[in-house]
Design a protein around this nucleic acid. Structure first.
Lengths: 218, 218
DNA sequence: TACTATACGGAACGATAGTTCCGTTTGTCA
DNA sequence: TGACAAACGGAACTATCGTTCCGTATAGTA
């Protein structure tokens, strides 16, 4: 007689649903390995979320992610305590990519070249990733915990490149990091909302880059 | 009973211009004049909507506008068939202001000066108007009918200034109007979301302006 | 195979926001 | 002042979405 009723294990309540945010190799909070189907579903959910959030941004309904992953919402929530947690998981990976790029650019020989080259890469990587644009633009979301750390890393990476480029005389004085990032994210938003082609995006980035160089300022 | 009372009586009436877009002199569809209270409420609703939408953008709840205007939602809907219609009414006035500015700039002597001067004015007028930013950025709204005409007028006005400035050698070749507007709206969005001060906004506009000038492009 | 902790699915719940409905109030006119 | 169309207010209805609940299915194991 399978004990049908009961509150079925503290699985759900046991606290922690969150515990570990990654569970990389199938290990759960404690040392116990995840069941095979759970592992598979978790991966599917992440894949689906990546596609859906990239296409529609944060505002995409959770149900859509679940459907796309071929699981029920309940299952989704078993793996991620809230929609925000799932969204963060996606954004985090993307952010880490940008952070790595920024850090690499902080030590290059040609500071000016490194700075401008980063700006172009940044724009290229953010374009068409609605989720990243939303996160960077903080469109009605409070990305926190895990992500805020990466944001700060990204900021300080850009700050470093900016300062070095400034010292090298490749960037006009007085520019701040939030301004640089604001301009870039603005360009990406513009490209997306008007469905401008890649050529236009590049041209807008060119304009921003050229505008950042020392010069007229009249 | 959810909605409730508790409210501040509103009627702040910041310095907003509320003209009479639709019912110019209190006349209704047919020739009959509107009742005095209806006219008064209509004006109050427009004033409230102007404040609320400027502060919060399209996503502001209708109930909030009604509350601020000191009327019930029913009354609001008696004057405007949908939330969108109300929003459009607000945006329309603001747009007309921009259109007028753009047209004026299309005939100035110094084409380059006129173009760049418009860009700065544009940024100044759009900043802090969350509703306009939303509308220009088309953030999840289908601004149509009445507004789309103004949008086109704005676009063609900017187009004209841009082409004249280009011919005068004050702007690099190959730039399109959507790119120019995209950059500007992007700057305004950036300024708002990061709560950058006016100094930063101006600096970003400077960067865009300088970047638009003929030059390096490397 | 039998057992059970783990995981699953999806109906149901609760909050929010746009819109409608209808009983009540009020401006206007004779 | 009385009558009535016009206008009002706000509860209620509808739709959307995030989240929870709980009965059922199943992977892993003895």
């Amino acid at each position: 007689m399978t004990r049908g009723a009961g509150v079925a294990g503290g699985a759900a309540a046991a606290g922690a649903v969150v515990g570990d945010r990654d569970a990389p190799a199938g290990a759960e909070g404690d040392g116990r390995p995840m069941r095979a189907d759970a592992l598979r579903n978790r991966r599917r959910i992440l894949e689906a979320a990546e596609e859906v959030f990239a296409a529609q941004g944060v505002s995409a309904p959770v149900d859509l992610v679940a459907e796309r992953a071929g699981v029920g919402v309940g299952t989704l929530y078993r793996h991620f305590p809230t929609k925000e947690a799932l969204f963060e998981a996606i954004v985090l990976t993307r952010l880490e990519d940008l952070v790595a790029e920024a850090k690499a650019g902080g030590t290059a020989d040609d500071a000016g070249e490194a700075f401008y080259s980063f700006l172009r890469k940044f724009a290229g990587k953010v374009s068409n990733k609605h989720d990243l644009i939303d996160a960077l633009g903080a469109q009605g979301i409070d990305i926190k915990s895990s992500c805020s750390e990466r944001f700060e890393e990204l900021e300080s990476g850009v700050e470093r490149m900016l300062r070095r480029a400034e010292e090298a005389g490749a960037v006009r004085d007085g520019i701040t990091t939030p301004e640089v990032l604001g301009l870039l994210v603005g360009v990406c938003q513009a490209a997306e909302r008007s469905q401008l082609d890649d050529r236009s995006s590049e041209r807008m980035v060119d304009i921003v880059c050229d505008g950042l160089r020392p010069g007229p300022t009249m």
